[in-house]
């Protein structure tokens, strides 16, 4: 699998938001500051990090929901630009975080799932449209009788299934899953995550799976990227990262994963980084994590560490570890 051409190739992606500080002055908020990664066809890359580190922005910028400030994004070898984005939307889709606000309350399920079909003219008649919608609903485990109902009549898990069916309508090869399970109950989370896995096996789609729950990410991902304040600090295979995290931030993040057995949990020490996450408006110089890092040196303040390869496919951005 390692020698196949990447489906998604992101190089130095940047997204700055202008923040108006009053009297016409603006400061750039560097939500995403030079992120690079690749995803192979049918592969799942997990993207984790704490709130506000830019995970969601990465996903949205890839789909041009925000205009990227800088960087390049190659999809299947083709550079994605403003011009070819409309046609590429048939191959890239997104599943949103909040199943309550991501479905239009005034549309029936049929119309919600049918909208991508309408927009891209993917059917020849009413009957074919209906047939396609019903088969999509079946794929995600919804009954045909649900088609004429409104979104608010469904539970969170069912709503998320509707959102997934909408993303699948155009037969995409790449889906950005923006925290698709974090708004759901734990029991429903498992259902939805398993559905993502089934769909990957059945349809061969690649995912960028954004989440803050490390257990779920570890479960579904082939590889995991850890983000901190707009930059990726570590990328590795899911198991490798779980067993052998190198970056101090990844270590503290992994130590926060709850363990279902209280005896083991008690013996394990949680590593809590000092202080608060700095404001992305006033990022520390050099390595963004240095203000909370126990290993920080003067070099960390002076320059920003690049991702370097430690072992096969394990990249870390740190000078000291």
């Amino acid at each position: 699998m390692s020698d196949t051409k990447p489906l998604v190739d992101v190089r130095d992606l940047k997204e700055y938001f202008p923040i108006h500080t009053g009297w016409g002055r603006t400061l750039p908020l560097k939500a995403v500051d030079g992120v690079s990664f690749t995803i192979k066809p049918g592969e799942t890359l997990g993207l984790v990090g704490e709130s506000g580190c830019g995970k969601t922005t990465v996903g949205r910028t890839l789909l041009h929901l925000y205009k990227p400030t800088g960087g390049e994004f190659y999809f299947d070898g083709e550079l994605v630009t403003e011009k070819n984005m409309p046609s590429l939307r048939k191959q890239m889709q997104m599943v949103f975080q909040d199943p309550y606000s991501s479905l239009n309350p005034r549309m029936t399920v049929e119309d919600i799932i049918g909208e991508p079909l309408d927009v891209h003219h993917l059917y020849s008649g009413r009957a074919e449209r209906r047939e396609k919608i019903l088969s999509l609903m079946e794929t995600v485990g919804l009954n045909a009788e649900h088609a004429t109902r409104y979104a608010h009549e469904f539970s969170g898990g069912q709503r998320q299934r509707i959102g997934i069916a909408r993303a699948l309508a155009v037969n995409p090869r790449f889906i950005v899953c923006d925290e698709p399970v974090s708004a759901l109950d734990v029991s429903i989370q498992a259902q939805v995550v398993n559905m993502f896995e089934d769909l990957r096996e059945k349809l061969g789609v690649a995912y960028l799976f954004i989440a803050h729950d490390l257990l779920i990410v570890h479960h579904i991902s082939d590889r995991i990227a850890v983000m901190y304040l707009g930059r990726i600090v570590e990328i590795a295979d899911a198991n490798e990262l779980n067993n052998n995290p190198i970056h101090p931030y990844s270590i503290s993040l992994l130590s926060a994963v709850p363990i279902p057995d209280p005896r083991i949990a008690r013996s394990k020490q949680r590593i809590i980084p000092e202080g608060e996450i700095p404001s992305p408006l006033h990022k520390p110089s050099g390595c963004a994590f240095r203000t909370r890092c126990p290993y920080a040196t003067e070099r960390c303040a002076a320059e920003c560490p690049e991702l370097t390869e430690r072992s096969d496919g394990h990249l870390v951005a740190c000078f000291n570890k």
Binding site: R60, R89, Q93, F96, S101, S102, L103, E115, V119, H120
Partner: peptide, 9 residues
């Protein structure tokens, strides 16, 4: 859902 519509194209 507006964002979703945009991402659909």
């Amino acid at each position: 859902y507006v964002l979703a519509a945009k991402s659909i194209g």
